[in-house]
């Protein structure tokens, strides 16, 4: 027998997952259409934070409000929150590491470009 609180939690969770799906589709399409490696980095972080952190928080809300899962739904909700925080910390760190290594090693051409201040500061 679903109460009003259960319905409110499920509606909030489904709204968060809808935002996440929209961000994920935008990131996947723009990964194909951007002209350069350094502009595709923005698509990576949009897909990582908007497409994976927000839906996992939404799953936590849905799991807290569903009676049909039994008594284990609290385990699902808490575990999803931990996964979301881990993902939020690791996505930014990983993308920064690969971007710094690529710029120092010159592994990707910086072609449709106007100015590169970091290159001038390093004396290149």
């Amino acid at each position: 027998m679903a109460t009003l609180l259960d319905w409110a939690l499920v509606i909030i969770g489904q709204a968060l997952i809808t935002i996440g799906v929209f961000c994920d589709l935008a990131a996947a399409i723009s990964m194909l259409r951007f002209p350069n490696f350094y502009t595709r980095l923005h698509a990576l972080t949009v897909g990582s934070v908007g497409g994976a952190f927000v839906p996992i928080v939404g799953v936590a809300f849905i799991a807290a409000g569903s009676e049909f899962l039994g008594v284990y739904r609290w385990f699902l909700a808490g575990s999803s929150l931990v996964i979301a925080v881990v993902e939020l910390l690791l996505a930014g760190s990983g993308s920064h590491a690969i971007a710094r290594a690529t710029h120092r090693a010159k592994a990707a051409p910086t072609q449709p470009i106007i100015v590169d201040k970091l290159e001038e500061e390093r004396g290149g």
């Binding site: 990964m31 897909g47 990582s48 994976a52 996992i56 993902e87 990983g94 690969i98």
Partner: peptide, 13 residues
Amino acid sequence: VIAVDALGYDLAA
């Protein structure tokens, strides 16, 4: 590497 990265994170979600 970036494509595999994004694929892995979204697969986890």
